[in-house]
Amino acid sequence: METSRPLQILRDVTAVLVVGLFMFPIFWWALTSIKPSSAIFDKDRVNFFDFVPTFINYGVTLLGMSRSEMAIDQGIGMGVGGGGAYDSRQSIMESIIVSLGATTITMIVAVFAAYAISRMMFKGRNHYLNWVLGQRFMPPIAILVPLVTIYKTAGLRDTDNLAMGYFGLMMIYALMNLPIAVLLMKSFLDDVPKDVDEAAMIDGATRFQTFRKVVLPMVKGGIAASAVLVFIFSWTEFLLSLFLTTEIRTVPVKIQTFVTSTGNEWGFIAALGTAAIIPSFIFILLVQKNLVRGLTLGSLKE
Rank of each mutant, 00 (worst) to 15 (best):
G263M: 04
N126V: 10
V98L: 06
V219C: 12
R89F: 02
G134R: 00
L178G: 07
V60D: 11
N177G: 13
H127Y: 09
V251W: 02
G79S: 11
V46R: 06
F281N: 04
P279G: 13
S118R: 04
H127F: 10
A15S: 11
V80N: 10
V145Q: 11
H127I: 11
T274W: 09
P140M: 05
S4I: 04
I255C: 01
L144C: 06
M176C: 06
V253F: 02
L147D: 13
L144I: 12
V13G: 14
I105K: 03
M176T: 14
M201K: 03
L216V: 15
G263T: 05
D44Q: 06
F49E: 03
T54E: 11
F188C: 14
M23L: 15
A271V: 12
S95P: 04
M171F: 14
S95Y: 01
A154D: 09
M78C: 03
Q135H: 01
M1L: 10
A154E: 08
F41G: 01
L100M: 07
K220P: 01
I180K: 06
V253P: 01
V60H: 02
K35A: 09
G81T: 11
E94K: 03
L144S: 15
M65P: 01
L62Y: 05
L31N: 14
V182Q: 03
A224V: 11
M218C: 07
D50V: 02
I56N: 06
K289V: 00
G222C: 10
G82V: 05
N264F: 00
W235L: 08
L239A: 15
W29M: 15
L189D: 12
M120I: 15
T14I: 11
M93W: 13
R249H: 02
N161M: 08
G155K: 12
D203P: 04
L169Q: 14
T210L: 05
A39L: 07
L239I: 15
V111Y: 02
D42P: 05
L184D: 08
S234M: 07
G82D: 13
F211S: 11
Q90C: 00
D12M: 12
I105V: 11
M93Y: 10
M185I: 08
V253H: 06
G294M: 06
K43Q: 08
A71W: 10
P53A: 06
A71R: 08
L62W: 02
Y115F: 03
G83Q: 08
F24D: 06
Q90E: 12
A110P: 00
Q288E: 03
V230Q: 09
F24K: 08
Q90L: 07
L156N: 08
M1N: 07
A39R: 01
M93F: 11
G84W: 04
M176L: 14
T106L: 01
M121P: 03
F48H: 03
A154K: 10
K186V: 08
F27R: 09
